[in-house]
Design a binder for these strands. Structure first.
Lengths: 212, 212
DNA sequence: TCTTATAAACACCGACCTGTGTACTTAACG
DNA sequence: CGTTAAGTACACAGGTCGGTGTTTATAAGA
């Protein structure tokens, strides 16, 4: 543990087996789905022997749960810490996802595993609840009349965009962003301005934010 | 083919093999998911020999596609034909789903199969597009300024409710309905009334309608 | 009745799956 | 150096999967 991580260009095979397995999981579970990714293929991509993989993770189910827990630690939560944006702008920035964002891995896991008791499904619930709480908190800062309601509504829009993008195979995030703009303005009592007509699109600054 | 269907109480085993297979598909694919349902179990539930099942469906993939095509022919489309409702009420009635509605099978199939080229995934796209078109049409009747936009937005809300219900394991349809009420009112230029404050819930008549 | 389509029964195949047992190698650290 | 933890290689078990071959039974239509 002394030589810690051996620099940015990680060595191909050797000591960092666990991290390589998790890295391969992120790639393969996203690209192929969980059920269609076998442990043999996963270990081959990770360049880790299967025996070693099973010494770090008791089962594939546990690996899937850990894969969700470790999923890109700084995806969306980063949006909520942007002090350069107003609370309202932060809520809208949530919908500034890159054009081709894969299906939210939490939704994917919940659907693929199809078992609410599965550790990964439980964590997916926790994560989704946490995101909604963050949105609620920001909605409160933004002065929403009913922050819990707005937070839950925005969370539903994010999930809807993700699911619909997956089914239609075309980006639905802008549609969700347009709805968000309407319901945000509707939920925050305007100090002076009029409540916006119809052509409502998120015309804020381009924000490089990912995740769902 | 003359004795057609043999009455309401279908005979257990015998001539109606194809329909029994499709019936078992609807039950098992919904309850267990597609990937977790093997053909052996499916044929056992359908009380059809596996050999016969494969004489009606060339492969499981084809069965899945046909299962989607046959999925409860009168689920949601029925809402759009209710002449006793105004167009706006019809749009809102779309969200009057029973408390515990399973995940939309089209979303489930698209996520589980994880292949946009799969026949079932293609049909899921077609179906989702058709529903959006119906919503758009109704939105136009309701006098929406931008019917295409409103139709697509409502479709996204339905998908979001379905996906989020699956992940959270708790009903998200009312949340989607509340959003729908807001964006519908926002998209239809009000003849005289004010554009609604905040406490917007679908207070229409209870309509027994299912599907997504 | 005879004919023919439909279905049942049931064993079976090859591929793939998760997970393990065993023996060998390598790298870190004292 | 030697010790010890980490990893490799590889075969293999036990199960499930989708799909097939073969033979026999049965019900419908002529």
């Amino acid at each position: 543990m002394t030589e810690l991580e051996k620099g940015p260009q990680g060595q191909r095979r050797g000591r960092g087996a666990r991290e390589r397995v998790l890295g391969a999981s992120q790639q393969l579970f996203r690209d192929q789905g969980i059920n269609r990714t076998g442990m043999d293929q996963l270990c081959a991509v990770a360049q880790v022997s299967k025996r070693t993989a099973y010494q770090h993770f008791a089962s594939k189910d546990e690996l899937v749960a850990e894969y969700l827990r470790r999923f890109d630690p700084d995806v969306m939560p980063g949006v909520f810490d942007r002090t350069d944006l107003t609370p309202r702008e932060r809520l809208l920035a949530t919908f500034e996802l890159p054009a081709s964002t894969p299906l939210c891995p939490y939704i994917a896991a919940a659907v693929e595993l199809h078992d609410p008791q599965h550790p990964a499904s439980q964590y997916a619930r926790d994560y989704k609840t946490a995101i909604a709480a963050r949105l609620t908190e920001t909605a409160r800062e933004a002065g929403a009349t009913n922050p819990e309601q707005l937070g839950e509504q925005l969370a539903l829009l994010l999930d809807g965009a993700s699911a619909r993008t997956q089914v239609l195979n075309s980006d639905s995030v802008p549609t969700a962003a347009a709805i968000a703009a309407v319901i945000i303005d509707n939920a925050i009592p305007a100090p002076s301005a009029q409540p916006t007509g119809e052509r409502v699109t998120t015309g804020s600054a381009p924000v490089p934010v990912r995740g769902q």
